[in-house]
Design a protein around this nucleic acid. Sequence first.
DNA 1: GTCTATATGCAGATAGAC
DNA 2: GTCTATCTGCATATAGAC
Lengths: 188, 188
Amino acid sequence: MKAKGEKIRERIVEAANQLIYKKGFNAMSFADVAAVVAITKGNLHYHFNNKESLLQAVVEMRLAAIRQQLILWDAEFSEPKQRLKRFLQMLLNEQNELVRYGCPMGSLNMELAKQQTDLLNISRELFDAYLPWLERQFLLLKIKQSEQKARHFLSMAQGAALMCHVYHDQAWLLQECVVIEQWLDSLP
Amino acid sequence: MKAKGEKIRERIVEAANQLIYKKGFNAMSFADVAAVVAITKGNLHYHFNNKESLLQAVVEMRLAAIRQQLILWDAEFSEPKQRLKRFLQMLLNEQNELVRYGCPMGSLNMELAKQQTDLLNISRELFDAYLPWLERQFLLLKIKQSEQKARHFLSMAQGAALMCHVYHDQAWLLQECVVIEQWLDSLP
DNA sequence: GTCTATATGCAGATAGAC
DNA sequence: GTCTATCTGCATATAGAC
């Protein structure tokens, strides 16, 4: 538990986090990560045996951030609809990154979904962190089929992120956010 | 234009098409394609210099299929809403493949969107083939903001395909199709 | 056209000196 | 812990015989 040892681990995970988002998990190499952290590949392998353990660490870091964020939103807004709109606001706040690199969750899960089952099981936890929270908001609104509503909300957000990314088109994202917000407002 | 030469080319493109869908473009190797077609890697390189030309050929094949399909749908249904519902029916018809491998368009574009700009420009043509057709249907319905409606429709479909793929969950897809159809019915 | 053989590069991963 | 050196495997791609 040496302080310095912990620090380098954090720097590695942070570098991997950025590289996974900007290059994709498969395109990211140990050499890439080592270069950013300014250590050698061999040293990096001392800290993380393989790519899977690196992914695990990155996902855990993201999970901690997501959970903290949701707690914050719960405290910040008492109205469930306001909380859901805060979720949409997040898309707008990060519109530049979304257009360039896609959704950090969606793009990673999509990349791992085709064949790499073990890795997908790890990255899917990111969605799992959001879904119950979303469902709870619809439950609080006393809306029927709250699970289905949560899924629809998340689906629409992912679809918007995917399309605006493929077309590098901010306008697409903005318009989708408007439509999703209208859908929220149309609910009882 | 020798018949036999054309035939092997078609077999290569068909094999690549399947492998790109089921394994992903980057995970697919020349060795994979050669094995399916039962030729050697060297021979495959004689027909396609590099992966980009293979992708180009695959996309062109898919484009031809899409265009033919849209012409068919136009002939089959006179009502624009029926045509759009036929699009949703396609998702249901291929639900097993969607759950396993995702949307052939969406997963390919997502994979290429992060860094490989040249390849993305090729694969995006697939979306470009659908979008004007979708917009035309909303135009025929005399619906305002038909372009935005087409984008929303496609976004929702892509979101549904992504989520049902990541969760390997047919129910997710089915429910989203129901919701999207309700959205269509709610339009004037 | 199709093959074998090979060049080249980079990936993930390991061994062992310091 | 961090380094250098190296192994192994597989990828794209090319050369040249048949």
